[in-house]
Design a protein around this nucleic acid. Sequence first.
DNA 1: GGTGCAGTTGACCGGTCGGTCAAGCGGTAG
DNA 2: CTACCGCTTGACCGACCGGTCAACTGCACC
Lengths: 198, 198
Amino acid sequence: MTDDTRTRLVRTARALIHGSSFAEVGIADLCREAGVHRGSMYHFFPSKEAVGLAVIDANWELLKALLEESFDTEAPPLERIDAFIGGFAGMLTAARGRMGAVPGCPIGNLALELSGRPGEASARIAEILTAWQRYFRDAVAEAVLGGHIPAGVDPDTAALRALAYLQGITLMAKAYDRPTLVAEARTAIRTLIQTPTP
Amino acid sequence: MTDDTRTRLVRTARALIHGSSFAEVGIADLCREAGVHRGSMYHFFPSKEAVGLAVIDANWELLKALLEESFDTEAPPLERIDAFIGGFAGMLTAARGRMGAVPGCPIGNLALELSGRPGEASARIAEILTAWQRYFRDAVAEAVLGGHIPAGVDPDTAALRALAYLQGITLMAKAYDRPTLVAEARTAIRTLIQTPTP
DNA sequence: GGTGCAGTTGACCGGTCGGTCAAGCGGTAG
DNA sequence: CTACCGCTTGACCGACCGGTCAACTGCACC
């Protein structure tokens, strides 16, 4: 309650949208849940789409925190990736406990919902996905240099594949409501990363 | 035009939803596009959700046709999977030509949008995903028996991983608007399938 | 000719949507 | 004291939402 009104709005919007979808969360719901009046919300955001963009950025900020924490260590590069996946799976299971169902990836959900439709959102999401890939790529590159991985591996495609698999398994985890799938992704992602690309 | 009204509704709904999302397609849009009057639509479907379910089934029917065509052959099992991925990628590139952007997987999109919310849709989608997996699983099992794949491979987890990767790379293809990513998925899925699971 | 029924038509409903706005609040600077 | 300003308040807007309904049409069956 000591929070900034704007902050409170973004935080509530984040939670509501993560629990369902951008389209399904109305301004009325958002304001009610955040304890903010309609007009007050429009004092901070010019439109609902602007709230959506703020939510995307907030999601990325949270995800980036986990990425930094997992990758900015002296652990061997492949273990950093494992650590990140563990943390990511942890976030999902925690969210499931909070909301009763696996909510899916905060970025991936919005990627499917907002990509390929007018507005800045799709570009922003593409940027975020490439930034995310970059963390994987750097770790893979370091693993190649360190000899933990065959030299034939291209860090960029390995990173793309790793993120794709993570997104896909998270989708399945949501569809089946089985968060453990994500934690088990470690081995599959290792094989994806360790296999040379022609 | 000689089509059944109901069929025309489902077909149009399929196209519209695939182009954006279930939530964004209104009854008004649907009826206008299909050339059907409001009340007429409600003669065939009790609710919008029912239309959604019909669309899910129609999507599955189309996908199943491609699956049957790819897997019900005498080609070596691993090549059947390749063939399917090729066909799937072809569908996406064709859709991109038609609609101007990669639309994503007709099932995966709805999986993320409708899973974990009240209604039969989520259960229906989970069924479809497992049915889809089954095609992969049978092919993998046959490949194990035929010795094309190490004996340590568990067909079920291999199939899960393959489908997860396909979904994930399709998500990325939509986000980046790069349909070629899906066609290139063949090699990654091969490595996922050929690696033994402990 | 009459009856029944699948299918059509389009006006209509209450509710909710995203968005606006004029008035009012407390604090602060002149 | 007053004038300004960031922020709040809640009534209000037209458009659109999913859904209803009574009247109507064409056709098959008796």
